[in-house]
């Protein structure tokens, strides 16, 4: 593989804390966003995703302050999402220091928001998030409101639509696998990866380096987003990257020159 697979830390934010649940339920506090982002940045993570998991439910957006604090100290792409409903929300979060904005629920209600945002801010900052739940063999349905509400759409149709609207990347989260530590949903990632040409970020289910290796080998996503492994200190980022390299998966080498 010629390209470096990006290893992304996904931090689910609730209020002032980073939380982690199982299949998006049973949330447990695992740390503070500022401290964790800073630590992961210095350890060599390639990118950070903040998902405000209650913003969409409670119709509020209090992320900006946090984004400003965090982005003053980390110099890698920061993607922020949760409760984004308008161009104004995009502007606010970009101004606060986000480099990319992820959007899920509102995109299903108002797909043109993606098109509009891509035209104004550029596709590079439009990350379309899909929370996919398995319905039957080879059939997944996008869910919204953090995995609580159905959309009755098909994941492949939706991914293609998002690409045509101008999304720059797809963050593909398996609702079934999230927090279960049972490995990625490789069939899902393969299916979506093959149906679009924009980068796909695989997310949900990683509990070991072997899991990351397997998804890179079998589905070849552009990036993997992990949380559990890092939040519970199972492995640090260098160990993950070194192990992947030994198995033939290239990642960015951390450089501490300055």
């Amino acid at each position: 593989m010629i390209n470096n697979v990006r290893i992304i830390a996904r931090l689910e934010i609730k209020g002032l804390n980073v939380v982690k649940g199982i299949q998006m339920e049973g949330l447990r506090v695992v740390g503070q966003p500022e401290e964790m982002s800073n630590r992961y940045f210095h350890q060599g993570i390639d990118e950070i995703i903040f998902s405000d998991i209650v913003a969409s439910l409670y119709n509020r957006n209090h992320l900006s302050e946090l984004v400003t604090k965090v982005s003053n100290k980390i110099f890698i792409p920061l993607c922020v999402g949760g409760g984004v409903r308008s161009i104004e929300n995009y502007r606010e979060l970009l101004r606060a220091g986000a480099d990319k904005i992820s959007i899920n629920s509102e995109a299903t209600r108002n797909p043109l928001l993606i098109e509009k945002a891509a035209n104004i801010f550029g596709s590079q900052c439009i990350v379309a998030s899909i929370h996919a739940k398995k319905i039957s063999d080879n059939n997944w349905e996008p869910y919204i409101e953090n995995g609580r509400e159905r959309t009755f759409m098909n994941v492949v149709d939706w991914a293609k639509k998002l690409e045509s609207l101008g999304a720059g990347e797809i963050l593909l989260i398996s609702v079934d696998k999230d927090g279960t530590c049972s490995g990625f949903d490789i069939n899902l990632i393969n299916l979506v990866k093959k149906s679009v040409s924009i980068p796909v970020i695989a997310c949900g289910g990683a509990s070991s380096i072997e899991d990351i290796y397997k998804v890179c080998l079998e589905a070849k996503p552009s990036a993997v987003a992990i949380s559990h492994i890092l939040h519970f200190n199972k492995f640090d980022i260098n160990t993950i990257k070194d192990n992947l390299l030994e198995k033939g998966i290239n990642t960015r080498k951390h450089y501490v020159g300055i």
């Binding site: 390209n3 470096n4 990006r6 390639d46 596709s123 590079q124 720059g168 990347e169 040409s197 924009i198 980068p199 796909v200 552009s222 990036a223 990642t251 960015r252």
Partner: peptide, 12 residues
């Protein structure tokens, strides 16, 4: 070609 994603997003 078909296998390489575009936009190019990543570390090089």
């Amino acid at each position: 070609n078909n296998n390489i994603p575009l936009p190019h997003v990543g570390w090089k």
